[in-house]
Each structure stands twice: as structure tokens, then as C-alpha cells.
Design a protein around this nucleic acid. Structure first.
Lengths: 270, 270
DNA sequence: GCGCCGCTCCGCACACCGTACGGATTCCGC
DNA sequence: GCGGAATCCGTACGGTGTGCGGAGCGGCGC
């Protein structure tokens, strides 16, 4: 109350701690964004409420007015990251309106490329893989959060994939099954790739060097397992990163083959 | 040194803290087993070195003479659980050697059932899924540990799958790719199932009730996503558990179709 | 028999964690 | 101008993983 015109710098010359609405200072978006920054930089075990608070010039517990608890924060973070996914473009899928467009054959005005759905789904799969590899901590969180089933970005993405498949002639439940298979494959593959890359990064070497470094242990562990032994020897001379890439591309192609086969069998019987 | 024959119960009547070799009291196997018991009973966040120690009538830090740190413990635990996997039996794969018994196969002395590898791999996949569902905490750990690449039980299992595929005519690298695809699918699918079941268990209801309870929120979240909305409505009247089961069986069949297709294309060109 | 070595186990301590709680501060509608 | 609501934070509690030094014991060389 008193001493309104103090100018002398002293303990009482408070550094105007008073800023409540000068900047909102804290918002859910900011918190989530900073959390992602921490995660990307230092991985999952580096994310603590205290560190997060400090990074935002805030107290540790201040986050709890914007976020119920850490688990909810992580759900938000996951869905936020899923927002990076580009949706497949559906323009090539169907030329005409919503009419049956009878023959999947190549005729008919505005008829779509019958393989367009494969390209679109592949695009989705590649996108998810890229996102996971860009944020490898995702996989150590998927087991707890599932796939943030109801997050808006997850919903958006699912709807888009279902759209692709439905427009390609899949029935809804069939489309859902197909999406499930694709996503399972992608998540499984990305999980293994991400954890592989994480361990490499933790040891500070690059992929090829790590393979060489690991080889003796691998050979030792493969004692009594001739096929694994042969396999390790063969892989030694392969470019690890390229092999991963090819493995994924090959796998998704193969999964789509299976889906296409089942779909054809289904539509023939109709 | 003194007072060797104390009998009076008192503070000094030590409850014979002296037992060093009466029972080994602590061994790596025991530690791992107890850790699994904790994990199965109360999930991943219930596993702490302190609790583990207490359960074994030991101090918290005593575990560190048998295990480097918690991470290593978890690696051991994962591989231990993988030991539950039954290996596919390979007798049906090739007729020769163990007396073909012709059996289901059509003709040819000792010729094997050409579809036997599919059955064997399906068996593997089902086994992994069952193990994961029996120990749902596995998935919240897979992202960190990868697949415990070099654990003996993991090696055993991988070698067995490779054997199945090689005996079915796959080349080693081809077999490895196929195994990768199958495992990716299985892990992805099981991850989603396990985390789903875990959240359900955490809320103390059963699957069907949880679906109903979740439905309003799901419908709300599906606003503006007509396909998802329709999907939720349709799934409402389906038995959730049976749907999961069917989804997995269907998915693995489909993946194997893809693999078989690629394999056939490969062998034709040879 | 004796003394010592090494292995095992443990109490203590440290730094850190998530978060409940209550008090301070500021903003907004009246 | 004032009262309530929203926001932020200091403090505290009970928990975590684990480094360290010491204590008890079995087995080994003498």
C-alpha cells in the first residue's frame, strides 16, 4: 500500500512478478507443444512435470490447471503428433458421383484407377511410419494409450482411410478390418524400427557401426541356431537403413495384396 | 562374539538375521519370477525394486547384485515370458526324415502338405498373441526393449519360424522378411488389443459393458465423421471379444495370403 | 585351526518423481 | 469498487531408481 514511487533497486523493488494476463503464459497448446519438444529432444524418460514447468517459466504444478494429470497430457501429446499426418487425397478414387461405377475396369467416364486405393493406403502407411520415426518415443507410449482412440486427429485419419476404402468398393466393416490389418502392421513394424533406432541413438553411434559392434554378441547368441547365424552373416554386408526401408515397403505391398485378394473373393461371391 | 547362548527374547535376540547360505534367498530366476508375478497381478507401474525386494524378503538394493539395473531386469523378464511360447512342430513340413506319413497330402512319397507352413506360422502367431494377452504389460515395454533381440527364448522362437519357412521352400532372406511381416502384424494387433483390455480392466468392468459405456463419447467424437459414426453403431450390436478374435484370425490369414503370393511369384521366375 | 578374501545382502542417502493442498495474485462482470 | 473466479505457485508427502560403505558369511590358502 505505502511506498508507491520506489525506484531504488532493492529487495522491495520487486521485479514485477506481477504478470497474469500480460501473456497468457500457460495454455494447453503451449504445454503440449513444449512437451513434444522435450520428448523429441531427450526421449520419454526426460519428460517430467517439473522440467516441463521450468521450460515454460512456470511452477511444476501449474500445469495441472490445464491438464488433469500426466497421463492425459500424454494422450494430448499423442493426438497432437498424429496431427502431422497428411490425409490421403481421394480425388483419384472415384470419377463419378456416388454411383456404383460398375466395372472396376478401366472404362467409363471419369472411372477411377482401380489401384488408386492401394496408393492412397500406402501413402497413409508411409506417413504413420515417418511420424513414428520422427517421434520414436511414441512407441513407448502406445502400449499405455492404445491409439488415443478418440483424439480428433486420430478420428480424422481413420475416417480418411475408411473413405478411401469405401470409395474403392469396400463395405464399411470390410474396410474397417482392412484398416485394422494395415495399422497393425505399420505399428508393429514402426515399433521395432523405432526402438532399434532409439537404442542406437542412446549409444551415440550410427546404424552401420552399431550393427558391426553388435555382431559378435549376435553371433555368440546365435550359437546353436544355424539359420540365425547365416542370417546375421548375410545381413552384415547389407545397408541396414536401406534394408529397413525395403522391408517396410515390401511388407505393406504384401499386406495390400492379401487385402485385395480377400476383397476380390468377396465381391465375386456377391 | 560374546553371548553365544542367549535365549531371552529381547532386542538382542536377533531374529537370526544370520542366514547367508541357509537358503540362497535370492537368485536371478527367483527375482525374475517374482517380477512377473507382480506384473501379471498389478501391471507395469506396480513393479518397483522396493516392492520386488519386499516380496522376496529382501532389501530393495539387494537385487542389484543379480541384475545390473531395472532395465536389464525387464529384458530378462521379457525373454522369460517369451519362453512360454510353444515352438511350431515341423514334422508335417517335409515328409522325408521323420517318416512322411503322407497323410493329408495328396501323393508323392513323403511329400509334405504344401499348406503346412501356413498352419505352423499361424500357430506361432496365435501363440504370441495369447502370450501378450496373458501378460498385457508386455506391450508397454516392447517400445523400450524392442524385442529383446538376443534373449535365448527369442532366438529359439525366431529360429523355429525360420526353420518352418525354409523347409517350406523359402530362401533365408525371404523367410526373414516373411517372419518380419508376420511378427509386425502380430505385435501391432496384440498391442492394440492389450492396451484396450488394460484400460477396461483398470475401470473394473467387462468388455461389453465398457463398449456401451464408451459409446456416447465415441459418437460425440465421431461428429463430422459419418463413416466412423456408422461403424460405431454397427459395432454396438457385435460381440466385442469375438470380433477381436475374428479380426486377428482374418488378419493373419490375409497376411499369409500376401506372403504366399509373393513366394509363388518368386519361385515361378526361378 | 586360523585368517583373510570375496560374495552377498542391506541401511542410508541422494536426487528426482507425480501431485494434493492452500494461499497469493490478478482479471472480469457487475 | 467489489466479489468471485481463474490462475499460478510454494510446500509437502509418499514414492521412485540406485550409489555407497559396511556387515555377515562361506570357502580357500596356510
Amino acid at each position: 500500500m505505502a511506498a508507491r514511487k520506489e525506484q531504488i533497486p532493492s529487495v522491495w523493488t520487486r521485479p514485477q512478478r506481477a504478470r497474469r494476463r500480460d501473456q497468457p503464459a500457460l495454455s494447453r497448446e503451449q504445454i503440449v507443444a513444449e512437451a513434444i519438444a522435450i520428448l523429441d529432444a531427450d526421449g520419454i524418460e526426460a519428460l517430467s512435470m517439473r522440467r516441463l514447468g521450468t521450460r515454460l517459466n512456470a511452477g511444476a504444478t501449474s500445469m495441472y490447471t490445464h491438464v488433469a494429470n500426466k497421463e492425459e497430457l500424454i494422450e494430448l501429446v499423442v493426438d497432437e503428433v498424429l496431427g502431422e499426418l497428411r490425409l490421403p487425397d481421394t480425388t483419384a478414387l472415384r470419377g463419378s458421383g456416388s454411383s456404383g461405377a460398375a466395372g472396376s475396369g478401366s472404362v467409363g467416364s471419369g472411372s477411377a484407377d482401380p489401384d488408386a486405393w492401394r496408393a492412397a493406403i500406402t501413402e497413409c502407411a508411409d506417413g504413420v511410419r515417418a511420424t513414428v520415426l520422427r517421434h520414436p518415443w511414441l512407441v513407448s507410449v502406445l502400449g499405455d494409450v492404445g491409439l488415443a482412440y478418440l483424439g480428433p486427429n486420430m478420428m480424422r485419419f481413420s475416417e480418411a482411410m475408411l473413405t478411401v476404402l469405401e470409395e474403392a468398393g469396400f463395405e464399411l466393416l470390410e474396410a474397417n478390418d482392412a484398416m485394422g490389418v494395415v495399422m497393425a502392421f505399420v505399428v508393429g513394424m514402426a515399433t521395432s524400427e523405432a526402438s532399434w533406432l532409439t537404442t542406437i541413438a542412446r549409444h551415440g553411434t550410427d546404424e552401420q557401426a552399431w550393427v558391426e559392434q553388435l555382431l559378435p554378441a549376435a553371433k555368440e547368441a546365435a550359437r546353436g541356431h544355424p539359420r540365425l547365424h547365416r542370417l546375421y552373416l548375410m545381413q552384415q554386408s547389407l545397408d541396414a537403413s536401406a534394408t529397413r526401408e525395403k522391408g517396410f515397403a515390401n511388407g505393406i505391398r504384401l499386406v495390400l495384396d492379401g487385402i485385395e485378394l480377400a476383397h476380390r473373393a468377396r465381391t465375386e461371391n456377391r
